[in-house]
């Protein structure tokens, strides 16, 4: 049993979680783990091993078939609609398929989380271009996603995920479509966010990414529906 001080530092908690799509075999089997606030976690596994599925349980796109998922200390099975969206606003998600709104410009796509949070329009118009120019999209403020390259769309998705400085960042293959120079820049951004308090979880099948990084991190690995802890940080 965790005491209160420990419990409050746990941001994500899975207890005997299983996930199954329809009548298919279970993708995730009896998974138990927890993520501490302020940690930096890599989630690896072969393609099809269920990394995206695991993340989708965390960003509340679906409920587990069995077991218990809790976020920020709240069991998501017993949460009201309004509270669910409050939890989602504390998350930043980089979806593997980006999920950008094709009819909106880069600026408006990235502004969505701020507008949802009720940030004033002047602030939105100040912060979004700032971030976009940092991430190398200054020239594409008014471009629609369909006119951008895959790597540019990925950066747009990342900008949208971090614009509101989330408590928990879930990034699904965030460097899958960019060259190694941009990939390092993105990882650097995540590390900076992590330093100011964002808990980061990155799902990737690219294990080189982890080796390059010289930071304290957790390494979780999915295999055959089970989760293995490969690496624990030195300081936690």
């Amino acid at each position: 049993m965790l005491d209160m001080s420990q419990a409050s530092r746990i941001i994500v908690r899975f207890e005997s979680v299983s996930l199954q799509y329809g009548h298919e075999p279970e993708i995730l089997r009896n998974i138990t783990f927890s993520i501490a606030a302020g940690s930096f976690t890599f989630l690896t596994g072969r393609s099809g091993s269920g990394k995206s599925s695991l993340l989708s349980l965390m960003y509340l796109a679906q409920r587990p078939s069995r077991g218990l998922v809790s976020l920020f200390g709240q069991n998501i099975s017993f949460i009201e609609r309004q509270a669910l969206s409050a939890i989602r606003r504390r998350l930043g998600v980089v979806f593997q398929d980006f999920r950008l709104l094709d009819h909106l410009s880069t600026l408006d796509n990235v502004a969505i989380p701020l507008r949802i949070a009720g940030v004033r329009e002047e602030e939105v118009m100040k912060h979004v271009p700032e971030l976009l120019s940092w991430i190398g999209l200054a020239r594409f403020l008014h471009a629609k996603p369909s006119t951008l390259s895959c790597g540019q769309k990925q950066r747009m998705a990342i900008a949208r995920a971090v614009i509101s400085r989330p408590d928990l960042l879930l990034a699904d293959e965030p460097t899958g479509s960019v060259d190694s120079r941009v990939a390092r820049r993105i990882l650097h951004l995540f590390i900076e966010l992590n330093k100011i308090g964002t808990t980061v979880i990155i799902a990737t099948h690219n294990e080189h990414l982890i080796k390059e990084l010289n930071i304290s991190r957790v390494h979780l690995h999915l295999e055959g529906g089970r989760l293995l802890l490969l690496d624990t940080p030195k300081i936690f």
Partner: peptide, 15 residues
């Protein structure tokens, strides 16, 4: 699909 994305980004019904 757009509404679903907005919800995933934390939108409330009101928004």
């Amino acid at each position: 699909s757009i509404i679903e994305i907005l919800y995933l980004l934390g939108a409330q019904d009101d928004y």
